[in-house]
Design a binder for these strands. Structure first.
Lengths: 215, 215
DNA sequence: CCGCATCCGGGGCGATACTG
DNA sequence: CAGTATCGCCCCGGATGCGG
């Protein structure tokens, strides 16, 4: 990116991470951990492949991303965040919180990945039964790659992957899943509109939307 | 800006404030309060005037900036941050903190404005004599527009303007001023290299750099 | 002066095709 | 799988003009 050429900490930060796609790449690496090029790309629908390669190079030379040639049996290149890259977490958190209200008005053709719920979930979901057994809810929405919501001891987190023994599996259009999780949509309404819930419905009731202006 | 078209809070935030110059415009409005077009521009060396006009319009329609036609004797347009715009403060703060280490290596032709010190000062300066009388130090560096460092009751802040009765006036090249404030440069060294200090030198000693990796 | 609008050249970006 | 190559477009940068 063309530098702002300003001796200002904010401008210097934007010189490094202010370009288009850059912070979203960091988001993917933060949610996935060390990842293959192709997996990063799958989490960034719309990015041009040359841009992704460019950005990864820039991030690497800025000390934010490291590149590792994994030996067999992985036998591929892995990209991960350095410590300096991890330090961007508060930045992404604040931006995400600020952007939460904007998710209330999604465009009909917006792409969706279930693991993108990780950030919002940490902010607007809480475990209404902290003393209950660990809870696993699998989410399938908008893409082939499912995610799992874990609730245990009052904490709620989201990770990529499938649940081995899920308490419930929720699948359907992103809007419906999002609406239910945000408390904007009644579960019965959502089911009536096409949401599918396998397993115990009560599992879902255990998650409570706590933030006021959630998505 | 072209939307990322992703149903993700972070992507939605970047859709609104991710374009080039946008967050720097917010920075200026945050540091200056409601300002005239020309003054904003003075704080953004390098921006093209049509871009500033474009961005202000976008920010206005995004509900981040309001525009007010001030009546005489001001008789001009004022731009200011709405509440939604003010809520970007934590974002700018985190980005600024992350960018602080990058200020250690400024390019020789980087522009500088004294009021850009406001953010860093709040993070790496502290008042070593909290019970002392209010302190005013005027800073002149890199531009015509001076700034004032206030210290009182242990708090340090920076504002645009001149001090009516400053305890000290520091002027010189940005590098020197920055070096002294960050504790990177000894005051005597800086003076030997061209820094000018009028008034009581002790006033400067009262400010202590507290952060480790400061600029 | 202040707050822009217009014009134009260059480069970042987007999409597709292709390759070791 | 992890990119490179190519091409068109539009955003951006810089200069100038212009009405209130």
């Amino acid at each position: 990116m063309r530098s702002y050429a300003q001796c200002c900490a904010l401008a210097k930060a934007l010189d490094v991470v202010g370009e288009r796609w850059t912070l979203l790449i960091v988001r993917e690496l933060m949610l996935r951990g060390p990842s293959r090029y192709t997996d990063i790309r799958a989490g960034l629908p719309g990015i041009a492949t040359n841009l992704l390669a460019d950005r990864l190079r820039q991030l690497e030379s800025a000390g934010i991303v490291y590149r590792e040639e994994a030996p067999p049996p992985i036998a591929t290149t892995l990209f991960g965040l350095t410590e300096r890259g991890e330090q961007l977490r508060p930045v992404l958190d604040e931006l995400l919180v600020w952007g939460l209200p904007l998710m209330a008005e999604p465009a009909p053709d917006d792409a969706f990945r279930a693991h993108w719920l990780a950030g919002p979930a940490a902010h607007f979901l809480s475990d209404s039964d902290p003393d209950g057994p660990p809870l696993e809810i699998e989410i399938r929405a908008g893409d082939e790659e499912p995610a799992v919501i874990d609730a245990a001891g009052g904490e709620v987190s989201v990770r990529i992957g499938s649940a081995s023994d899920p308490d419930a599996v929720v699948s359907g259009r992103p809007q419906l899943v999002l609406g239910v999780l945000a408390g904007r949509l009644d579960l019965d309404d959502a089911v009536r509109r096409g949401l599918t819930v396998q397993g115990r419905r009560q599992a879902l009731e255990r998650l409570r939307a706590s933030a006021p202006a959630a998505a």
